[in-house]
Amino acid sequence: MAVLKKTPTMVSIPNHFCPGCGHGILNRLIAEVIEEKGYEKKTIMTLGVGCSCNMNASWNGDKIQCAHGRGAATATGVKIARPDLLSIAYQGDGDAYVIGLAETLNAAYRNEPITVFVINNNNFAMTGGQMSWTTMPGQVTTTSVHGRDPALTGMPIRVPEFAATFPDVAYVARGSVHSAKEINRLRGYVKNAIEAQLNGEGYALVEVLCQCPTNWGMSVEKSIKWMEEEVAPYYTLGELKGRRK
């Protein structure tokens, strides 16, 4: 029997991401899970600043735009006011791991019952490709023009590994959108992260490795290859903290 798969309503508006960008895949996976749970009219998405701002135009659901780095704090306030709703923070790595590192880690530390999705594309993409804490050693960005030198700027940050050490945190995983196999796995992580909140289990964080052909200065094909060969081996994929229940 043929199965007709239709686009979830929450991603039914054309998005403004660059050609070849991976954000749209994560948008769709989140939308699918929300629809599956029947939460289309019971979700508030807090958008960070960066490429996630693009979702102001395309995310077809309730959304609050907050300032750079403050996604976890805003989503915490949303959840306090409306514990009956699904409160999601959608951010990039510059937003959640650099300027918002305090808010991100403190929300995890307190085990706030929110779900945080972080797109890790190894750079500040919206501002034109500057070095982020997630930029790979040797990676050329507009603020590391000779390639990132870890001796001067540190090794790429791995926040989910740290968040997973907080004893109460409900769920932490890292997925990727660089292959069909990984996208299928990621769908499971997204589902767990949303279910953890709906079941009152606590804080959930899913980091998603994502290609950024525009700012990496690579073709999509080369971007995917670089992710497989350079990024994914450093940023281990999989569940870092599984659900207890």
Binding site: I44, T46, I64, C66, A67, R70, A72, A73, T74, A75, T76, G77, V78, K79, I80, A81, R82, A102, E103, N106
Partner: peptide, 26 residues
């Protein structure tokens, strides 16, 4: 009612921001 000791001043104001966006007196 809810009291929250925030990690810093900015986080505190954004918690209020999120809660009052949803209509809660904060």
């Amino acid at each position: 009612r809810r009291f929250l000791q925030a990690e810093n001043e900015m986080a505190a104001v954004y918690m209020i921001f999120g809660a009052y966006a949803c209509g809660m007196r904060s």
